[in-house]
Amino acid sequence: MPGKRRLFLFQELSANRKAPAETGAMAAEALTYANEPGGDPYLHNELIWAGDAPDGKQSMAVWRRELGLRVRPARKSNMRQLSYEWLAGLREIVIDPMRCPLAYEEFRLKEFERDRDDTWVDEIPDGNEHSIDAVMDDVLGGA
């Protein structure tokens, strides 16, 4: 619904320390499903925004060619502040803790820093934000 400004996370894939071929296979498997009960599963043609590692462009080309995935590099330069501003503008963030345990824990624990007087500072510490980065790659990837 327009104006609701909600983010729903209902599935996550973690590919830490996986080869590009393994990551591509995980994505292809997640995107292969039937649209209705009893229907034939097929690979859905969804766009995937992927972090642009030094070898990312070659890896993404391999995914597209061998697995039929549409993968584009996510732009990351100076997007951190914009990402947190976008998230702060949401009315609600809903995360399924059973299906997305990594994202649930990360979003739950992320908070602004405090100074020595225990006063909130307008800065979010960097680190342990892989799930947040992945969500923002999808939301702001083509920005």
Rank of each mutant, 00 (worst) to 15 (best):
I124Y: 03
L7T: 00
W49M: 15
D133I: 05
E85S: 14
P73Q: 06
D96R: 03
D117L: 10
K57N: 12
G24K: 05
A30L: 11
R5M: 06
A27Q: 00
L43I: 04
P54N: 05
D133P: 00
P37Q: 07
L9M: 10
P125K: 07
S59A: 15
F112S: 11
P37K: 09
F10W: 11
N16W: 08
V71A: 11
S131V: 00
F10I: 07
P20A: 08
G141W: 03
L109H: 12
D52W: 10
A34G: 05
L140C: 00
I132G: 00
R75Q: 11
I93R: 10
G51T: 03
A88I: 00
R114Q: 14
T119H: 15
M60Y: 11
Y84F: 11
N128I: 01
G142L: 03
G127E: 01
E36V: 05
Q11I: 00
A50V: 08
I132F: 04
V62P: 02
W120Y: 14
W49A: 08
P54T: 05
G38V: 02
H130G: 00
V71R: 06
E29M: 06
D133A: 08
I48H: 04
L102N: 11
T32L: 04
P2N: 10
D40F: 07
D118L: 08
Q58E: 13
Y84L: 07
M1W: 04
E46Q: 14
D40T: 14
C100V: 09
E36W: 13
G56W: 09
Y104K: 08
S59N: 15
E12T: 04
T119W: 14
A27R: 05
A103P: 00
K76L: 10
K18I: 02
S77W: 12
D137V: 00
M79C: 05
A61P: 00
E22S: 13
G127P: 02
D117W: 12
V135R: 01
Y42C: 07
R5T: 00
V62H: 13
E129Y: 02
M79R: 14
R17T: 12
L140I: 07
N45C: 08
P20V: 03
R5K: 14
D55N: 15
L102I: 14
S14K: 11
A21L: 03
R108M: 09
K76F: 12
E85V: 14
R116Q: 14
N45Q: 15
D55R: 15
P101E: 03
F10E: 00
E123Y: 10
V135N: 02
V71Q: 07
K76D: 13
D55I: 11
A28L: 09
P2Q: 10
G3S: 06
A34D: 01
E105H: 10
L67W: 00
E105F: 10
